[in-house]
Structure formats: structure tokens, C-alpha cells
Deep mutational scan, measured.
Amino acid sequence: KQVQVGDEKYTFDTPEEARKFAEKVAKEKNLKVTEKNGNFHVE
């Protein structure tokens, strides 16, 4: 599963790991997490 933050992409083995990372980054940057096709976008 992938997490996209701006132009950066991070790959994780499980959706749970990806979601945790996305939520942590979103909180730090005051952004929101959206899920698209099983991948997460922080925007």
C-alpha cells in the first residue's frame, strides 16, 4: 500500500501501517487523509 504526501510516495506492507503513517503525517502537517483505490493520500 502506498501513502502519497505531496510528490513523495511511501510504500508499506499492510494497509494498517500505511494508514497509521498517513494519519501521523496529516496530524503533523495539519492536513487530511483521503483513501483512493486502497492507497492513502495526505493533502
Rank of each mutant, 00 (worst) to 15 (best):
K20T: 10
F12C: 05
A18Q: 01
T34L: 10
T11Y: 14
Q2D: 08
T11W: 15
F12P: 00
F40W: 12
T14H: 05
E43I: 13
T14F: 05
E35T: 10
K20G: 06
D13L: 09
K36W: 11
Y10W: 11
N37M: 06
K24A: 11
D7S: 12
N37R: 04
A22G: 00
G6C: 12
F12W: 01
Q4T: 14
L31E: 05
G6N: 07
E28W: 07
K32F: 11
D7H: 13
K1I: 15
A22P: 00
Y10G: 01
F21H: 01
K32P: 06
L31N: 04
Y10C: 07
T14A: 04
P15R: 14
T11A: 08
K20F: 09
N37G: 09
D7L: 12
D7Y: 11
Q2N: 10
T34D: 05
Y10V: 03
V25C: 13
T14M: 04
N30V: 04
L31Q: 08
V5W: 11
Q4K: 08
P15Q: 13
V42K: 03
E16M: 06
E17K: 05
K24Y: 09
T14C: 09
Y10N: 01
K20C: 11
R19A: 05
F21N: 00
D7A: 12
N37H: 07
T34E: 06
K1S: 15
E35D: 06
E16H: 06
H41R: 10
D13T: 10
F40Q: 02
K29N: 13
F21Q: 00
V5A: 03
N37L: 06
Q2P: 02
K20Y: 09
P15S: 13
Y10K: 02
F12S: 00
T11R: 08
T34H: 10
N30D: 08
A26P: 00
Q2E: 11
V5Y: 10
G38P: 02
E35Y: 14
E35L: 14
G6T: 02
F21M: 01
K36R: 13
K9R: 13
N30M: 07
T34R: 09
E8A: 12
K27Y: 11
G6M: 07
A22V: 03
T11M: 12
V42Q: 03
P15D: 10
T34K: 08
K1Y: 15
P15E: 14
P15I: 14
V33C: 10
E8L: 14
E17S: 06
E35I: 15
T11I: 13
V3R: 00
V33M: 07
E43L: 11
P15F: 13
K36F: 12
K1H: 15
L31D: 04
E28Y: 07
K24L: 10
Y10E: 00
V5P: 01
Q2K: 07
E28N: 07
Y10L: 04
E43C: 13
T14S: 12
H41T: 12
E23Q: 09
T34W: 11
E17C: 09
N37T: 04
V33G: 02
F21S: 00
